[in-house]
């Protein structure tokens, strides 16, 4: 039950993008096409889940025993950067097409604040290892969900005649605002 609560809360109620404002840069940057956004979503799910496990182990088996919790930010960001590099190398070998499509945004997962944000949040919330993995995985699913829905909207938006001052990011932000309102409807759920 507790795990179901974590899952629903992380995907719908406290959606990373619409309620916590993490990972906005890739959300706005890679949401032009549904196919690309799905690839990005998958990459983020993968990276966030692994990063959460690594962050948990680092926090409770290295930082806390040594009493250097204040080094958290530095250690986490370095480990995440190395991890992303690894994912990039693997993806380049396994699926060059996807690698091409994701282009600049794959190395940028390093600076996707959702990854570091989830790592810090799971320490703050004092989750156990299994809870951390559940939380990270469902947060990432929430991110992918938001990204794909938004990409679908933006594909339609491209065909519309938008006033010049609204073109590009402004109309995307306003659309995201309306989408965030829709997600607020879930707030009574948990």
């Amino acid at each position: 039950m507790e795990y179901i609560l974590i899952i629903i809360s992380a995907i719908l109620v406290n959606n990373v993008v619409f309620a916590q404002f993490l990972g906005i840069c890739p959300f706005l940057g890679v949401s032009n096409k549904v196919s690309t956004s799905m690839g990005m979503g998958a990459a983020v799910v993968f990276v966030i889940t692994i990063a959460a496990v690594v962050a948990y182990l680092l926090q409770y088996y290295v930082l806390v025993p040594l009493g250097i919790q204040y080094m958290q930010t530095i250690v986490f960001i370095l480990v995440i950067a190395a991890l992303v590099q690894m994912v990039e190398i693997v993806l380049k070998k396994v699926s060059p097409a996807l690698y091409q499509a994701l282009g600049i945004f794959l190395p940028l997962i390093t600076t996707n604040c959702a990854v570091l944000g989830v790592a810090i949040l799971l320490v703050q919330k004092q989750y156990s290892l299994l809870q951390s993995v559940t939380f990270a995985f469902s947060t990432a699913i929430g991110f992918a969900l938001a990204l794909v829905i938004f990409a679908g909207l933006r594909e339609r938006l491209d065909l519309d005649d938008v006033p010049r001052a609204f073109r590009g990011t402004p109309i995307a932000l306003i659309t995201a605002g309306i989408l965030a309102m829709a997600f607020m409807g879930f707030s009574g759920l948990v």
Partner: peptide
């Protein structure tokens, strides 16, 4: 949350 997107937009 929605206000943030709308105002910035």
């Amino acid at each position: 949350a929605p206000g943030a997107f709308l105002v910035l937009g």
